[in-house]
Simulated scan of single mutants.
Amino acid sequence: MKKGDFIWGIILLSVALFILMPATHIIFVDFTAGHPYISGFIKFGILATMGEMLAIRISVGDWKKPAGLIYRAIIWGFLGIVITLMFQIFAAGVTGALEKGYLPGKGSSFAFAFFVSSIMNLTFAPTFMAFHRFTDTYIDMVYEGIKNIKAVDVVGRIDFKGFVSFVLIKTVPLFWIPAHTITFMLPPEYRVLTAAFLSLALGILLAMGKRGGKK
């Protein structure tokens, strides 16, 4: 057990207590409802970055700050804004499709949750994850001192075989679709809490998938 383990754990515990304690839970829910994009930025910027750092701790056995940590956190925050919007778009779209009979299971909370999760993870998620892999790789190249980086250079550096075989083929059907199905079966106010902590797992899985592809 290292000092960094305690620090990481204390930060996570503090976030969890702020979300779960009755007094601050109300503040969290009200702020999320009133400022969804700002709260999405904060949640994903903090928790997904923590997940990425934990992945480094697991893979190398020590706490190491990834190059461009602030930039990575900002990108996670931006992705949190996009995910906040996508949750609403896919939920509304599936609701409409169920009501009009385009999808089976009208009136079923499980059908709603399963279709939202499946459609979102099979369409939006691969694009979102590929974008994150691109930005992550670009930051790595910048901090390696590479000059005049072009998009084609970044794409050529990405291990798409590992990305497809691990991130898409394994994590999407085995983790993300079931996890988000559970998320969308919860009342809307609790989906926010679940999404915040799933972003922690997202950081871990994407970072581990990236490093696993380098072995």
Rank of each mutant, 00 (worst) to 15 (best):
V192Y: 05
E144R: 11
I81P: 00
K215N: 14
K64V: 14
D62C: 10
I27S: 09
L202K: 00
L103P: 08
V29E: 13
F134C: 06
G34H: 07
R191P: 03
M141H: 03
N148Y: 08
L20K: 06
L193Q: 11
G51P: 02
G145N: 12
G68K: 05
S39F: 09
I158Q: 05
I46A: 11
F18G: 09
G4Q: 05
M53R: 11
N121G: 03
A130E: 04
L13S: 12
F184Q: 04
V116N: 03
L198M: 09
I204V: 15
A48S: 15
T183L: 15
L198P: 00
W176N: 01
V155R: 05
V167A: 12
F110K: 09
H132W: 12
K150P: 08
G4H: 03
V152G: 10
I46T: 09
G61P: 05
F78T: 14
L200G: 03
A111W: 01
K43N: 14
R157I: 07
L85T: 13
P188F: 07
Y143K: 03
I177A: 04
L103V: 06
T127C: 15
Y138V: 05
L200W: 04
H180N: 14
T171W: 00
I19N: 11
S39Q: 13
D159T: 06
F166S: 07
E189T: 13
Y37H: 15
K147Y: 03
T32W: 10
I56M: 12
V29M: 10
A179Q: 07
A207L: 04
I75E: 09
L206W: 00
D153K: 03
I7N: 06
L206Y: 01
G4D: 04
E144A: 14
H25G: 01
P36N: 05
P178G: 06
F41L: 07
M50F: 07
L20V: 14
V94Q: 00
I204N: 04
E189A: 07
Y102A: 12
G80V: 06
I11D: 07
I149Y: 05
F78N: 01
H180F: 08
D153N: 13
